[in-house]
Write a protein that binds this DNA or RNA. Sequence first.
DNA 1: TAATCTTTGTGAAATATTTAACAGTGTCGT
DNA 2: ACGACACTGTTAAATATTTCACAAAGATTA
Lengths: 207, 207
Amino acid sequence: MLNKIPQAAVPRLSLYYRALLESRGKDYISSEELSKLTHFTAAQVRRDLTYFGQFGTPGKGYAILGLTQAILSILGTDKNWDVALVGVGNLGSALLSYKGFAAQGFKVVCAFDSDLRKVDKTLEGIKIQDTSEIEPTVRERNIHIAIVATSAESAQAVVDMLIKSGVKGILNFAPIRPQAPASVNILNIDLSIELERLAYFLTRSRV
Amino acid sequence: MLNKIPQAAVPRLSLYYRALLESRGKDYISSEELSKLTHFTAAQVRRDLTYFGQFGTPGKGYAILGLTQAILSILGTDKNWDVALVGVGNLGSALLSYKGFAAQGFKVVCAFDSDLRKVDKTLEGIKIQDTSEIEPTVRERNIHIAIVATSAESAQAVVDMLIKSGVKGILNFAPIRPQAPASVNILNIDLSIELERLAYFLTRSRV
DNA sequence: TAATCTTTGTGAAATATTTAACAGTGTCGT
DNA sequence: ACGACACTGTTAAATATTTCACAAAGATTA
């Protein structure tokens, strides 16, 4: 089964995982029930899961505990991930205090900013370091995931530094598309673009 | 040409727009040049643009001013959009002070929170109102776009209120998928899911 | 054990999206 | 005005993704 896995199947896996957590009372759950909880079709649920293996029992469904663990393992969130944060402005600070990460095994363990007024201050128990310390710190702590919440202007330089320091995955909030080698994964979250998508839909639907 | 427009073409339009802004020195730009700037293929640039009309001149390319204006008009960002913000925690405050929105014609004009310690405080020139005031305020001000930055628990109720008040597009940061009628567009930005996608890619690529 | 029921896993069909290739159209220099 | 050139718009092919539909697998009941 050399089937290629659609990109969009991965975030769906995360949603199946959430639905499984909500269903922990029972032992088994069917693709039909998962469909109801996630609003994807039952066929898509089954198809998505088979991209990664065979987890179900015909006639019964999926063992909730087993599937939960399987998805954790597929996503890699059965392990802990140390995360570096660059840019401790409004958004960066908000991300630093966001409690949702911890539950999935992500932990921001260091934070950087180029603003000297912020450097050496402590936020959420983390001492903010100067951006010049990105490379030694990230390399030494063996960090593979970073969040970039800097201005558009500094973002590419920061991304370059992070990659040089061994980072392999970046969640980028700066409103540019940083360039990076194919071995590095960059996910862009671009608020303006999302609002523009909304404006587009609204403009169209009125027509 | 009743071609259906791929969902993904819309955010690409936003990126073409940005590239056009960067190219304002010249009068014309070719799909090849837009391709270099955006890292989409030239064929895709041309195809995307023709979903919305004919903007180019063979032998010359696209008139930068004209195409810029055309994209603005397609996206609906040639007009101003008033935006309501619900949830003024860390993330909500950060969004309130985010300066990037204004440039694209989006303006947060009212903010709501259920925490009475925040209500009546002023942030970025906006007086925070109690969530009970969502319906009258949003309806009276004729607001069609809202940003939801509440907890997972309150999000669905807030979304319901917003929809009842006439909101047609919602940018949702709460880690749930709110249910809404098809006439309402909801875009979800889910930080945990994005981090899980990164973890997945990292776990896979090492194999 | 056999008959019936439930639900998975998966080929095959349908749909959606991207890429390739090039005919046609306008530009530009002479 | 003409010929060489540049670039778009689009048709067709290639890919990717989702949906359908059902055979096979196991569960359950008698």
